[in-house]
Write a protein that binds this DNA or RNA. Structure first.
Lengths: 276, 276
DNA sequence: CGTATGCTTGAATCACGTCAACTGATGTGG
DNA sequence: CCACATCAGTTGACGTGATTCAAGCATACG
């Protein structure tokens, strides 16, 4: 299967894009507990249809690769538990020079954009132990054909992803190291709150300094300095798979954080669009 | 109308989101010449439907704003001629600290993502004189309802946009000033080639150093230094609204440019996904 | 017990930002 | 016609934020 490859030799091309579900599935696979975070937006009817379309649950080990750039994909995955990341590694697939372009939390579709695109421009991998639900593209196409409102919602989910992409461009282009890391923590805080993972200001964040470097485009060592500064400023303590938020307001102020780019997740009422 | 406001006073909220078409339109508005660049992907049937759905052509002056973050949008626009940009300006709408998160060339839908999102997280403005075709969201929804294949194609167009977003994240996070600007030029070269705007290696690029600074997250003056370096390295000469490519291969090598993130636009055959 | 992995620290270097002054082209009103 | 303003581009000096390299030190794991 597509695990991380310690031999360093690139996996042969034409790797089987076939997914091996660990269970045979069908109606009743998706629990109400899985309807968290971004996927909370879908209506009951669509959720029921997705439940019927799901044809597998799969577990991923930490650092395990789900798909690579260029793989022909036949399924898309909803992240049920854990945390996953998407990487661009140009040129020549240099592992040490890749950048994280997206991160997914429970309730996110990890690679729904592969439905209209058929293959992706980036790699998808698990950061921690993960559980995903698999949906054949044929079944998703069927859902789109039967109800345009459902098609619009699936589209919308990928557009919320794109809105986050834009914010990441802004972060990388305009924010300094300290503000950039603070901004990322604020985003993860909010997104993990939305799927009920934050208790007592403890944000579960199974990422090393090296992971944060791949998010922010900084060097690992400078990330370490930034984390120390955030800790000494009594804003938050990051490490051991947890971000402990000491001063949420201070952290947001430092980052200049405005959550409106996350639309519903920011907790705003739809009819009154945010204004700066 | 929503022009750039020299008085400095922000336009009153609840600005009319109503678009004033300069012509009354209908079938026959879209010419075959407008089917260039990204929109070349749409099939004849969808193109005909879009033609029927178009309810206005609008001209924009350089620097004129089409819409601002938070505006409730009722139309989406296809760029027929000119060049447009999308900006994030946090916090507090500081014009001098905004970043360009996207750029649109003829054949791009400028704000199709507003259809599932209803309002946007960023501003949209013209860089040069522009001509856009307007499509009411209701009519686009009608197209989606009638043919799921068309819905999938509209979705796909926005996902190609998102793929470019991801590359911009990569550029901002991983590339140094020289490589980043070179990379941007390579992208514009390719995209403007795809809409037939490049003749004799002259890429029409109506952007100032300040615009390029807003693309790359650099200061205006450092952009100036980078442009000088590119010129003295005999790679390309940028200025006066034109990028003159002297050595396309050298430029791509400097940037580490791999166009596969632009999918069809990169000129690859669909059945053989690109591999690095 | 040795060997990764993850975090830390310090010093040297470099890339980029900032400030200020200057040029040349364009436009405007008297 | 000239005086003046504006804007795009350029240059040089200087400050600083981030990278890089090297070394040290835990913990976890074979």
């Amino acid at each position: 299967m597509k695990s991380n490859d310690p031999t360093g030799t690139p996996p042969a091309r034409q790797r089987p894009a076939i997914v091996m579900p660990s269970h045979v599935c069908g109606r009743g696979t998706l629990k109400e507990a899985h309807r968290c975070g971004m996927v909370r937006e879908v209506c009951d009817a669509l959720w029921a249809r997705l439940d019927g379309a799901c044809d597998g649950i799969r577990h991923l080990a930490p650092r395990e690769t789900l798909s690579q750039a260029g793989d022909r994909l036949t399924h898309s995955a909803l992240l049920l538990d854990g945390i996953m990341a998407r990487y661009i590694a140009e040129p020549g697939r240099d592992r040490n020079n890749r950048l994280m372009v997206s991160i997914q939390v429970p309730g996110d579709f990890v690679d729904l954009h592969a439905l209209p695109l058929r293959y992706l421009d980036h790699d998808v991998a698990a950061l921690a132990d993960c559980k995903i639900a698999l949906f054949p593209h044929d079944a998703l196409t069927g859902i789109m054909e039967q109800d345009a409102e459902h098609a619009r919602m699936l589209w919308r989910l990928t557009m919320l992803d794109a809105a986050i992409h834009r914010h990441w461009i802004y972060r990388a282009g305009r924010l300094r190291a300290l503000a950039a890391v603070a901004d990322f923590i604020c985003e993860m805080d909010l997104r993990l709150q939305a799927c009920g993972k934050v208790r007592d200001n403890r944000v579960p964040l199974p990422m090393t300094s090296a992971d944060l470097a791949e998010v922010s485009g900084l060097s690992t060592m400078h990330v370490g300095r930034v984390l120390r500064d955030l800790r000494e400023a009594n804003l938050c303590t990051i490490g051991d798979g947890v971000a402990l938020i000491h001063d949420r307001e201070g952290l947001r102020q430092l980052a200049g954080f405005d959550p409106s780019y996350m639309y519903q997740l920011a907790g705003q009422a739809e009819p009154t669009p945010p204004r700066g």
